[in-house]
C-alpha cells in the first residue's frame, strides 16, 4: 500500500472537486489530504467519506496568498517530515504552476495533467494526452521518490459512492521561506462565467463570425443556457475575440458536456482542443467542413440564421 498525499486548494471553505475525484481513484492506498489554512469540520468529514485518513491543515506566515515558491517550500518540508511515496494535486492554475517546482525540490519526476491513473501492486502508471489530445500515452515515473502527479479536473469523474470512513484533522506548522515572486493584486475577470476549461456548455465562434460585434448573438444564446463563449484561433487572430477565449492546441483544451461550434471549419488544431467534449453540435454553411466529422449533430446552414432560432428554442425549454 502506497503512502499518498493529495494537496487540495480550498476556495470558500470548499475543497476542489478534483480532490474528491483523486481520492476515489486512489481508494485502497493510504491517503492523506493537505490544505493551506483552515478547513471546516464538515469538509473534513467529506474528505473522510471519500477515503482520506488524515487531513493536514498547513499553517505558517506568508501562505495566505498563493506563490509558487511559498507553497512548494512549505509542502516540501511537510512531505519530508511524513515520507510520502506519491503526491497528487489537481492540474489547476495553481497545480500546474507549483507542482513542477515542488517535484524539482526532490529532484523527482512529475506526470502532469494526467487523465487517468492506476496503482497495481508496487507499480503506478498514468495516461496523459499529448499534442492537445491528438494522441494518448502511458507514462511511468522513475527516479527518486516521492513521485508527483497532477490530474486534469473532470477527467476521472466522481466516484459513484464514497468509500465511507472518517478523517482525523490536525494542524502542522510549515515555512514558506523566501518568496521573490509575490502576488500584489488580483484583477477579477470581467465575466462571471465559468472558465472555458471548467464550463459545462461552450458555444464557440469562428472566422465566419466576421467581426467582434457579431459575437453578441453567441453571448445571447450562452446567456439562456449558462454557457461560456469560446472562439477559434482564426477568430482570435482576426481580432474578433480575445486570446483567453481561444479553444484549440494553442489555446485551451476543453471537455464540456456540450460544445456548439458556430462557423468553425474544424482545423486540426481546433479539433484537438475540443474533441473530448461529450456532445458536439456544429453549425456551418460548408457541408464538407471537417468539423462535421466530429459532430454528433451537424446543421448545414447559415449561423446568423440558425443561432437566433436556437436561442429561441432553448428559451422555450428553459421555461
Amino acid at each position: 500500500m502506497a503512502k499518498v498525499l493529495v494537496f487540495s486548494e480550498v476556495s470558500k471553505d470548499k475543497v476542489k472537486p478534483v480532490t474528491l475525484e483523486i481520492l476515489g481513484k486512489a481508494a485502497g492506498q493510504d491517503v492523506d489530504v493537505a490544505v493551506f489554512g483552515d478547513l471546516s469540520d464538515e469538509q473534513v468529514k467529506v474528505l473522510g467519506d471519500y477515503g482520506a485518513k488524515k487531513v493536514h491543515k498547513l499553517k505558517g506566515d506568508n501562505l495566505d496568498k498563493y506563490s509558487a515558491e511559498g507553497y512548494s517550500n512549505a509542502l516540501k518540508g511537510f512531505i519530508e517530515s511524513q515520507g510520502y511515496d506519491y503526491v497528487f494535486s489537481g492540474a489547476t492554475a495553481i497545480g500546474k504552476d507549483m507542482m513542477p517546482r515542488l517535484a524539482t525540490q526532490f529532484d523527482a519526476g512529475l506526470a502532469s495533467d494526467v487523465v487517468n491513473f492506476i496503482f497495481e501492486g508496487d507499480n503506478f502508471s498514468a495516461t496523459r494526452p499529448l499534442f492537445a489530445g491528438k494522441c494518448l500515452a502511458k507514462v511511468e515515473i522513475q527516479g527518486p521518490k516521492p513521485h508527483f502527479v497532477s490530474v486534469r479536473p473532470n477527467a476521472l469523474g466522481m466516484p459513484e459512492t464514497p468509500a465511507g470512513g472518517s478523517a482525523e484533522a490536525a494542524d502542522a506548522s510549515v515555512e514558506a521561506g523566501n518568496i521573490r515572486a509575490a502576488i500584489k493584486e488580483i484583477i477579477a475577470s470581467a465575466s462571471e462565467k465559468a472558465d472555458l476549461t471548467e464550463a459545462n456548455i461552450i458555444i464557440s465562434g469562428g472566422r465566419a463570425m466576421k467581426n467582434s460585434e457579431n459575437f453578441s448573438i453567441l453571448h445571447e444564446c450562452a446567456e439562456v443556457i449558462g454557457a461560456t463563449v469560446g472562439a477559434s484561433r482564426a477568430a482570435v487572430d482576426s481580432g474578433y475575440a480575445s486570446p483567453d477565449m481561444q479553444v484549440g492546441q494553442t489555446g485551451k483544451t476543453v471537455s464540456p458536456s456540450l460544445y456548439i461550434a458556430c462557423g468553425i471549419s474544424g482545423a486540426i488544431q481546433h479539433l484537438a482542443g475540443m474533441r473530448t467534449s461529450k456532445v458536439i453540435v456544429a453549425i456551418n454553411t460548408d457541408p464538407d467542413a471537417p468539423i462535421f466529422t466530429k459532430a454528433d449533430y451537424g446543421i448545414v446552414g447559415d449561423l446568423f440564421k440558425i443561432v437566433p432560432i436556437l436561442t429561441e428554442e432553448l428559451k422555450k425549454i428553459q421555461n
Partner: peptide, 8 residues
Amino acid sequence: EGGALEVY
C-alpha cells in the same frame, strides 16, 4: 482560471 489575473 476564468480570465482573472494575478499581478506579481
